[in-house]
Design a protein around this nucleic acid. Structure first.
Lengths: 209, 209
DNA sequence: TGCAAAACGGAGGGCTCCTCCGTATAACAG
DNA sequence: CTGTTATACGGAGGAGCCCTCCGTTTTGCA
């Protein structure tokens, strides 16, 4: 549910609304939308600078709103992550689909794994966001989760069909591997090592024909 | 060096040493040793129950000592981890050496990776401990780090010599992979997935001839 | 223009981290 | 055994964070 702007589930209590059924709710207030935006960009900054553990009060402070406002819009830290990184997760999923369409199956997969690491390397809070999205916390994230699966599925499907990788791989496997390889980011040389691990992993995918 | 009880260095009673040199230190107080032990087992329990984020004050409470005492013995959370998990890390390193000696190179390596996951699956705080040890924070952990490298090196060395895996693998690669594969522990089915990822990874190690 | 619904903000309770320092006590000398 | 003194003890206290609750303000809508 997220800050309450979900379209669905309305369950309008009366008034024989059509299938569209939603209690004729007031239009969201202007200040609400404004604050939501302020919070998102403040959070992006704060997470970038301080990592995913950064203080939420700091986010509210930077956004220039009260802490109460932050919690109303994003009841949990996770919800805030979802808001901040949703579009990045999307981009990654899209890239998967594009690569799947443009490159030979095996190569596309390998390339995508490397790209994913690149993205995570730059966006500091991204790793957490991905992990959360992968866990698929309840309904939250369901959208991102869906996109992610579709993207990875596209890569895997083609490669399996072409007989280039083992057939028992599922989308979550790819995400977990990528996230795992970045788990130790922060120490010297992690980037290079992650690259190597990805290559080994990609080799492994096609090894057990 | 940890809380100051560097093992031997008897260095015993010299008179007239340099003003700094090495002061003939008193024998550690009995209550100090006792409290140290109490803290370690309390920490083991608390971390097992509450994960690696558990409150240090809770540890002190359970140990029945003041918070100040905890901080004197273990100035940081990391130091406490080191104390609690040192022997487990050792065990893992030893197992690497044993497997390397008892099984065919490739098989030994694969088997060890699986074992490592098993251990981490059971010991709740272990993952953090390993990650810290791998990062090799300063001098702390240097002992564990050393043992770990030796263990992994034994596995890798034999496999490379036998031409069974690629030659550019270093010990840290193995640890990072293992830790990474466990990064998502906690969600349903992670155990099974981690096993699969390990197999893929092991395949990949020998794929690039 | 007026009225609620919706949003705002921040005080406050509860918890944690970590430091500091007066008090207690174990090791050692005489 | 007794006195000295280095060490260790414990917990109060300052600071920060999380999250809730509620009186106040703003805004959409009639």
């Amino acid at each position: 549910m997220f800050a309450g702007y979900s379209e669905g589930s309305a369950q309008a209590m009366n008034k024989e609304m059509g299938p569209e059924g939603d209690k004729a709710r007031r239009k969201p207030r202007a200040d609400s939308l404004r604050n939501r935006e302020k919070l998102l960009s403040a959070a992006a900054e704060v997470f970038r600078e301080g990592g995913p553990e950064a203080s939420l009060e700091a986010v509210a402070r930077r956004a220039g709103v009260g802490i109460g406002t932050l919690y109303r819009h994003f009841p949990t830290r996770d919800a805030l992550f979802e808001g901040v990184y949703r579009r990045d997760v999307d981009a990654l999923a899209e890239m998967a689909e594009r690569l799947a369409a443009e490159l030979p199956p095996g190569e596309a997969l390998r390339r995508w794994l490397h790209c994913a690491i690149d993205v995570i390397a730059v966006k500091k809070g991204m790793l957490e966001a991905l992990a959360l999205a992968t866990e698929g916390k309840q309904e939250l994230f369901s959208y991102s989760k869906c996109r992610m699966n579709a993207g990875a599925e596209a890569l895997i499907g083609r490669a399996v069909a072409a007989g280039e990788i083992r057939a028992d791989v599922v989308p979550d496997d790819l995400w977990h591997a990528v996230i795992g390889f970045c788990a130790m980011r922060g120490q010297p040389g992690w980037r290079e090592r992650a690259g190597r691990l990805v290559d080994i992993f990609a080799d492994g995918l096609s090894a057990a024909l």
